[in-house]
Simulated assay, not measured.
Amino acid sequence: MQRQHPLILLLFLSLFGLSACTTTPPPAPTTQWDAQKAALSNIKDFTVKGKVAFISPEQRVSANFIWQQEGDTLSLRLTNFLGATLLKLDATPERAVLVDNDGKRYVGGNADLLLRSLTGVALPVEDMMYWIKGLPAADNDYQLGADNRLATLSENALDSNQPGWQLDYTGYDANTDSLLPSKIKMTQNDQKVNLVISQWTYE
Score class of each variant (00 low, 15 high):
Thr23His: 07
Ile66Glu: 12
Lys37Ser: 05
Asp34Arg: 03
Gln69Ser: 02
Leu76Arg: 05
Phe46Tyr: 15
Ala174Cys: 09
Lys104Leu: 08
Pro6Ser: 10
Ile55Ser: 15
Gln2His: 11
Leu150Lys: 00
Gln68Arg: 06
Lys133Asp: 02
Tyr169Gln: 06
Gly134Tyr: 00
Tyr130Phe: 10
Leu179Asn: 00
Asn148Lys: 09
Gly164Asn: 05
Gln68Cys: 07
Pro163Tyr: 13
Gln4Arg: 11
Lys88Tyr: 12
Met128Phe: 14
Ala63Arg: 00
Val107Ala: 12
Ser198Leu: 10
Pro181Met: 04
Thr187Glu: 11
Thr176Pro: 01
Leu113Cys: 10
Gln32His: 12
Gln69Lys: 04
Arg60Pro: 11
Ser56Asn: 07
Tyr172Ile: 00
Ser14Tyr: 00
Pro26Gly: 09
Ala38Leu: 08
Lys183Gly: 10
Leu82Pro: 07
Asp34Gly: 07
Ser182Val: 06
Met1Asp: 08
Leu153Val: 05
Tyr106Ser: 03
Thr79Pro: 00
Ile184Arg: 01
Gln143Phe: 07
Gly71Leu: 05
Asp173Leu: 06
Thr92Val: 14
Thr176Asp: 09
Asp34Pro: 04
Lys51Thr: 07
Tyr130Pro: 05
Thr152Lys: 03
Val125Asp: 03
Trp165Phe: 03
Asn64Gln: 12
Asp100Arg: 04
Arg3Glu: 14
Met129Val: 06
Ala96Pro: 02
Ala91Trp: 04
Pro29Ser: 04
Ala20Tyr: 06
Arg95Lys: 14
Tyr169Gly: 00
Thr187Tyr: 06
Leu9Val: 11
Arg3Cys: 13
Thr152Cys: 03
Ala53Gln: 12
Glu70Leu: 13
Glu126Gln: 14
Trp131Val: 01
Trp200Gln: 05
Ile66Cys: 09
Ile43His: 07
Tyr130Arg: 12
Ala38Ile: 05
Pro181Gly: 00
Ser154Tyr: 05
Arg60Ala: 15
Ala174Ile: 04
Gln59Trp: 08
Gly83Glu: 02
Tyr169Arg: 03
Asp127Asn: 08
